[in-house]
C-alpha cells in the first residue's frame, strides 16, 4: 500500500479538524493542535494510505508552521464558506505552501455548507478552478462531500 502525506491548511476555526475527524482513524487527541500545532491521523483511500497532517489554523497572531508542510504530496485548502475573508485568505495560504513545497496537488473545501449565510460567490469558485483546484462545498456536520474531497485529492496525487 502506497502512503502519502497530505496537509490540511486554512484559517483558524474554518473546520479543518472537524472535517478531518469525519474521515480519519483518530490516533492522537486534539491537544496536540494547541501544543505542537499539528495533529496527525491516517485514512485509507483505495490502495493509498493518507497520513493526514491537520495543521493548526492561521490567525492574526500566527502563521502556518510551514515546516509541517515539508514532504506533503498534496494539500486540502479549507475555508469557512460563511466567512468570506477565510476564502480570500486561501490565496495567501497557498502562497505559503508553494514557497515551501512547490506546486503540489490541491483541493479546496468550502466548509460549513450546511449553514444558511453562505458567502462564497461563483466568481471565487471560478477563480479557484482556474488555478487548477477542485472545489467542494463541504459540511463536517453532515458529512457532505467529505469523502469526495479526499478521494479527489488522492486521484490528483496519483495522477
Amino acid at each position: 500500500m502506497s502512503k502519502k502525506k497530505i496537509c490540511m491548511v486554512g484559517d483558524f476555526s474554518v473546520g479543518k479538524t472537524s472535517l478531518t475527524q469525519k474521515f480519519v482513524n483518530n490516533v492522537f487527541s486534539e491537544k496536540y493542535l494547541t501544543t505542537i500545532g499539528v495533529k496527525i491521523d491516517t485514512a485509507n483511500v483505495g490502495h493509498t494510505k493518507l497520513i493526514v497532517w491537520d495543521v493548526a489554523g492561521r490567525d492574526s497572531l500566527s502563521s502556518i508552521n510551514a515546516s509541517y508542510l515539508v514532504g506533503a504530496a498534496g494539500v486540502v485548502l479549507v475555508a469557512d464558506g460563511s466567512r468570506p475573508h477565510t476564502v480570500d485568505d486561501l490565496n495567501d495560504i497557498w502562497s505559503t505552501v508553494t514557497q515551501r513545497i512547490g506546486d503540489v496537488p490541491a483541493v479546496v473545501a468550502l466548509n460549513k455548507a450546511d449553514l444558511d449565510d453562505w458567502g462564497v460567490g461563483d466568481d471565487k469558485v471560478t477563480e479557484f478552478r482556474s488555478l487548477g483546484w477542485d472545489v467542494f462545498n463541504t459540511s463536517a456536520k453532515n458529512g457532505q462531500n467529505v469523502p469526495e474531497l479526499f478521494e479527489r485529492l488522492v486521484e490528483k496525487i496519483n495522477a
Binding site: 496536540y32 500545532g37 499539528v38 496527525i40 491516517t42 494510505k49
Partner: peptide, 15 residues
Amino acid sequence: DSDAVSAMFSAIQSF
C-alpha cells in the same frame, strides 16, 4: 498506528 506515530516523531522534531 505506526504511520501516525512516525509522522508525529517528525512533527515533534520540527516543532
